[in-house]
Simulated scan of single mutants.
Amino acid sequence: VSLLPKVLHWLHITYNLLPRGVHLVLGRLLTVRAAVIFLMLVPVASVLLQAILCKSLVLGTVSDVKTNAQLLKGRVDNISTLSSEIKRNRGGVAAAGIQVQMVSASLDRMRSQIRRLETSVKEANARLQILMSSWEEVDKFNAQIPELKRDLDKARALNAKVRGLQRGLENVSQLFQQQNDILQMVSQGWKYFRGNFYYSSQVTRTWYSAQQFCLSRDSHLTSVTSESEQELLYRTAGGLLYWIGLSKAGSEGYWYWVDDLLFNKVQSVKFWIPGEPNNTGNNEHCADIKMSSLQSRNDASCDKEFLFICKQPYMPSEPCQDWPPSSNFKLQCLLNSRKCGSLLHTPG
């Protein structure tokens, strides 16, 4: 009996320390406490009689209480562990919430992209329909390609013919121009031979005076570069004396052509009269044509007066703007053509 208050006091303290979930278990202990108090009021005789029974009952009850206390302690430990896990899980739940928000934002962006893609697909489908409707025209064009190629080949061949005709017309035009130039020069007493014009004078002059006359006609005293040209000159001379454009500087000088053509000394040997040039009187520094033969060249004094032959290379020229001649023909020729200018002079 003396231990009963202590036991009850310990149970009361234990009861207050336990969680609310354990109070139901300890309710039974309170009921036992009430029963013990009630028994204490029983007459002393009953108490003494039942003391032994109560002792054993209390001891059993204390043993049960200890067992239950240990179980409750284990449950409290489990609850503490669960509380810690719950606290940790709260942080994870918060992080998961943020991730959910991010995923939600990503889904919104994906939905927006999907809508744009759907719009693009619709536009592509519309364009595809337009292209499909154009295939028929493309097929028609493809069917026309062989014919177009044939037409193109014909056009190319025709173009080639046109270019050939143009070149032919240009050649014809050049021939007409050349003939016109030649006719103009021939009408003034010039002869045409292999790309050059030759003028045979009707009056005699010294060699230097003859060269000045030729220069005034855009020409020089004639040079000779071939047998055919030598033959033309001596046939033109007809046995008369004609100055040519061959001269030398001083008694020991070298022969040269006044039109700056290269003098071929070896070739020239067969054109001199045998024994010429002999530089008679040490004063024969100019050459003339003396004989009507291939070997017709002679040296003579430059101060003598002979007939002379001018030579002018053919240069294509623009035709005079006013042809046939009119009242202002001379003025237009002076402005537009060197060849026409030669027509204004009467050869010496």
Rank of each mutant, 00 (worst) to 15 (best):
V1F: 10
V1G: 14
S2M: 07
L3F: 12
W10V: 13
H12P: 03
Y15C: 14
V22H: 10
H23E: 06
V25F: 10
L29F: 10
T31R: 09
I37M: 08
P43H: 09
V44H: 08
A45Y: 09
S56V: 08
L57M: 06
V58S: 01
L59W: 04
V62T: 05
V62A: 06
D64W: 11
T67V: 08
G74A: 14
G74I: 11
G74E: 15
N78W: 09
I86K: 04
R90I: 07
V100M: 07
Q101D: 13
S106N: 08
R116N: 14
R116C: 12
V121W: 05
K122N: 11
E123H: 11
A124K: 08
L131K: 05
V138I: 12
A143T: 14
Q144G: 12
I145M: 09
K149T: 04
D151N: 08
K154R: 08
R156V: 13
A157Y: 04
V162E: 04
R163N: 15
S173T: 09
L183G: 15
W190S: 01
K191W: 05
K191L: 13
Y192S: 00
F197N: 02
R205I: 03
T206F: 04
W207G: 02
Y208C: 08
Q212T: 10
Q212C: 05
S216I: 03
H220V: 03
S223M: 02
S226Q: 06
S226F: 08
L232W: 09
L233M: 11
Y234E: 04
Y234T: 02
R235E: 13
R235C: 07
L240V: 03
A249C: 07
Y254E: 07
W255I: 00
N264H: 07
S268Y: 14
P277C: 03
N282Q: 10
H285A: 01
D288Y: 09
S292C: 10
L294Y: 14
F306V: 04
P313R: 05
P313F: 03
M315Q: 12
P319N: 07
C320Y: 05
W323P: 02
P325A: 11
N328D: 14
C333K: 00
K339V: 14
G341D: 03
S342C: 10
L344R: 02
T346N: 12
